[in-house]
Computed example of a mutant assay.
Amino acid sequence: MKITPVDEKLSVAHQPSEAEIAALGANGVALLINNRPDGEEAGQPGTQAEAAAAKAAGLAYLHIPVTGPSLSRADVDGFREAVLAAPGPVVAHCRSGTRSLTLWAIGEVLAGNLGREEVLDYGARLGIDLSGAARWLDAHAGEPA
């Protein structure tokens, strides 16, 4: 599993195996967020298996499944609130880390911590394409908070 640090609290990752989830707990991670819908791809562990592995590793677990077309303001807010409330490091994952970073980036723009014009460059520095986040922000510009 590739893990990409985003800030001092959040990292995003590719799909972890159950053994990799156990290692997260041993490395001090407090919360694992799964941003994948169940059944998205053959061979992914799925929510029940991940939740059980997280519990066994002493991790809190949250499932916020999103796809590009289904991503909502409620998803962004729930993700941001969970990261901020976590008592320690958070690893959020999807298939590649892109959706997880997209949720974070949109939340940071909406909170005023990141400018819309900074999104693509921020993603590029981390090696993740945030064009989906930019499109979401453009499509939802002017909506009430």
Rank of each mutant, 00 (worst) to 15 (best):
M1A: 07
M1P: 10
K2M: 03
I3F: 07
T4G: 03
P5Y: 03
V6A: 08
V6E: 01
V6P: 10
D7H: 14
K9F: 03
L10K: 12
L10P: 15
V12C: 07
V12D: 01
P16A: 07
P16R: 15
S17K: 12
A19M: 07
E20L: 04
I21R: 08
I21H: 12
I21M: 08
A23M: 13
L24W: 11
L24H: 09
A26N: 13
A26Y: 12
A26K: 15
N27C: 15
N27Y: 13
A30S: 14
L32F: 08
L32W: 11
L32R: 11
L32K: 12
I33G: 13
P37W: 12
P37D: 09
G39C: 07
G39A: 10
E40N: 13
E41S: 15
A42W: 10
G43N: 12
P45V: 12
T47G: 14
Q48P: 10
Q48H: 13
A49L: 12
E50Y: 13
E50Q: 15
A51R: 15
A53D: 10
A54M: 06
K55W: 06
K55C: 05
A56P: 14
A56N: 12
G58L: 03
G58K: 02
G58V: 04
L59S: 08
A60W: 05
Y61R: 11
Y61W: 09
L62R: 10
V66T: 06
T67E: 00
T67G: 11
G68E: 02
S70R: 11
L71V: 10
R73C: 00
R73Q: 09
R73K: 13
R73F: 11
R73G: 02
D75I: 02
D75C: 04
V76Y: 07
V76G: 08
E81F: 01
E81K: 13
E81W: 00
A82G: 05
A82D: 00
L84T: 10
L84Q: 11
L84K: 14
A86T: 06
P87C: 00
P87F: 00
G88M: 01
V91P: 05
A92F: 02
C94I: 03
C94S: 09
R95V: 11
R95K: 15
R95W: 04
S96I: 06
S96L: 05
S96F: 05
G97I: 07
R99N: 01
S100H: 05
L101H: 06
T102I: 02
L103H: 09
L103N: 02
I106E: 05
I106D: 00
G107N: 06
G107V: 04
E108I: 07
E108M: 09
E108S: 13
V109T: 03
L110C: 02
N113E: 11
L114V: 14
E117C: 05
E117V: 10
E118L: 04
E118M: 09
E118Y: 09
V119C: 04
D121G: 13
Y122C: 02
G123Q: 13
R125M: 11
L126D: 04
L126C: 08
G127R: 02
G127K: 04
I128Y: 08
D129E: 05
D129M: 09
D129N: 15
D129I: 12
S131Q: 09
S131V: 03
S131Y: 06
A134Y: 08
R135V: 06
W136P: 06
D138G: 01
D138H: 04
D138A: 13
A139Y: 01
H140M: 02
G142I: 04
E143T: 00
P144R: 08
A145N: 00
